[in-house]
Computed example of a mutant assay.
Amino acid sequence: MITIIEQAVQARLVAAAPKVETVPVTFHYDRSDPFAVRMAFPAPATLEGVEVSWTFARELLEAGLERPCGHGDVRVRPYGSGRTVVEFHAPEGVAIVLMATSELLRFLERAATVVPPGLEHLYLDMDHSLAELMRDSC
């Protein structure tokens, strides 16, 4: 049974330094963290010159395809016909990433085959999560 989904998506960096216009970003979904998606940027597209990943709610990505969502570091909204914007807010500045909505829908459909939306709680390993939280407290 598949428990991890990865999908490359061609993205256009609208506001970025260093100047990179298009870049393949990788979306990652793992059943062991059922509420989250991870979006990884390759080294040439980052200020530090190393791969950078952002993790945020799968629900935020889903909802942002239809209406503006998010109030924190990650915000998602539709942009024109067939495109979606993901904004990343950090102390260094804001990165605006533009992608084809169809590619994001395909990723979300694939993730839904691993963990159906609304059933994420059934895939949480509470014992493991609690042990991780308590590991450094003793």
Score class of each variant (00 low, 15 high):
Leu13Tyr: 02
Lys19Arg: 13
Val114Arg: 03
Leu130Ala: 13
Arg135Val: 12
Glu92Lys: 06
Ala111Trp: 08
Ala15Tyr: 01
Leu119Trp: 05
Gly72Lys: 08
Ala131His: 02
Ile96Lys: 02
Phe35His: 12
Val74Arg: 00
Met134Glu: 10
Val9His: 03
Arg77Ile: 03
His89Pro: 01
Gly118Gln: 02
Glu21Ile: 06
Val20Ile: 02
Leu98Glu: 11
Tyr123Ile: 01
Glu87Cys: 09
Arg83Thr: 13
Met1Ala: 08
Phe41Trp: 06
Met126Asn: 05
Gln7Tyr: 01
Ala40Met: 10
Val97Ser: 12
Ala90Ile: 03
His121Tyr: 02
Glu66His: 03
Val115Met: 07
Ala43Lys: 10
Leu108Phe: 13
Glu103Tyr: 06
Pro44Ala: 04
His128Phe: 10
Ile4His: 12
Pro117Phe: 05
Pro117Asp: 10
Asp33Cys: 02
Glu48Gly: 15
Asp136Gly: 07
Arg83Pro: 00
Trp54Phe: 13
Ser137Trp: 07
Leu104Pro: 07
Phe27Asn: 07
Ala40Thr: 15
Val20Phe: 06
Ser137His: 04
Ile5Tyr: 06
Val50Ala: 09
Phe27Met: 12
His121Thr: 04
Val86Thr: 09
Glu62Val: 05
His71Met: 08
Leu104Lys: 04
Ser102Ile: 10
Asp73Asn: 13
Ala100Leu: 10
Asp136Glu: 11
Glu132Ser: 11
Glu21His: 06
Val50Gln: 05
Ser137Gln: 09
Arg135Thr: 07
Ser129Asp: 13
Val86Ala: 14
Ala17Glu: 10
Val115Cys: 06
Arg77Cys: 07
Met1Cys: 07
Glu48Asp: 15
Val97Thr: 03
Asp136His: 11
Asp127Trp: 05
Val114Pro: 08
Asp73Ala: 14
Pro78Ser: 03
Leu124Gly: 00
Tyr29Asp: 11
Ile4Leu: 14
Pro78Gly: 10
Ala90Lys: 14
Phe107Met: 03
Ala95Trp: 05
Glu62Pro: 02
Arg31Ile: 07
Glu103His: 09
Glu132Asp: 14
Pro78Asn: 00
Glu21Asn: 04
Leu98Trp: 02
Ala15Arg: 06
Ala8Lys: 15
Met134Trp: 06
Glu59Ala: 10
Gln7Met: 11
Ala112Cys: 09
Asp30Gln: 11
Glu120Gln: 12
Val114Ile: 14
Ala57Lys: 05
